[in-house]
């Protein structure tokens, strides 16, 4: 599909830390015309136009996978240089410091990752985005339903980075947007049309970052 769509000619990397389902994210980006390389090579991750950290499951083992391949430093360096980093689901959680389930994240953003407290956890299914402020990343997504599947959520120390929330027995952070570092707790690759919109926004955002 490369050569068509919003992302024609754009190259993104998916950080391959040895776990996680990266194929569905790659396919969703391909539908937008983005050529995506899945790699564990730190130099490639450091230099690409856009780096994405995706995946599901435990943040601790995902972080260990990043560290073992030197991808943690590569991501910190690119973020420090102002090159865009997008975290999806566990990838968003990895952008933060301390995880309640154990271990530390990349520490690009300050704040803990806490277990969701609700009558039913995991927070599973389609839920409505509530934008807290205008964000190019979330343009057109106010009030849209997107798919969540998680038991932990980020609690940013700087509330200003929170771009959208979702309600599950109280507000949960659904998206952060902090300069070159951004992330979403939901799965754009499994969120039908609103997911496509998010990915198109990401492309526009990373081109202008």
């Amino acid at each position: 599909m490369t050569g068509t769509g919003a992302g024609a000619g754009f190259r993104a990397v998916l950080a391959d830390y040895g776990a996680g389902n990266l194929r569905s994210v790659q396919s969703a980006l391909a539908r937008q015309g983005v050529e995506t390389v899945t790699t564990s090579d730190p130099a490639t991750v450091r230099e690409a136009a856009l780096a994405i950290i995706a995946g599901v499951g435990h943040a601790e083992s995902a972080m260990a996978g990043l560290v073992a391949r030197g991808l943690d430093e590569a991501i910190r360096e690119r973020a420090a240089a102002g090159r865009p980093v997008l975290g999806i689901c566990v990838g968003l959680q990895l952008l933060f410091d301390e995880h309640e389930e154990g271990g530390r994240g990349l520490g690009l953003l300050a704040g803990p990752v806490r277990r969701v407290v609700a009558p039913r956890v995991p927070h599973m299914g389609w839920n409505t985005l509530r934008l807290l402020r205008p964000s190019p990343l979330l343009a057109g997504l106010e009030g849209e339903d997107v798919y969540f599947a998680h038991s932990f959520a980020v609690a940013p120390a700087d509330r200003a980075v929170v771009a959208a929330e979702v309600d599950h027995a109280g507000p949960l952070c659904a998206a952060v947007d902090a300069g070159a570092v951004a992330g979403v707790q939901f799965h754009p690759e499994r969120s039908a049309k609103p997911g496509e919109r998010l990915l198109r926004n990401v492309l526009a955002w990373s081109r202008s970052a």
Partner: peptide, 11 residues
């Protein structure tokens, strides 16, 4: 499953 994952936009 690979084919499904590439085509499907819901879980």
């Amino acid at each position: 499953i690979e084919h499904m994952s590439a085509e499907l936009e819901i879980p």
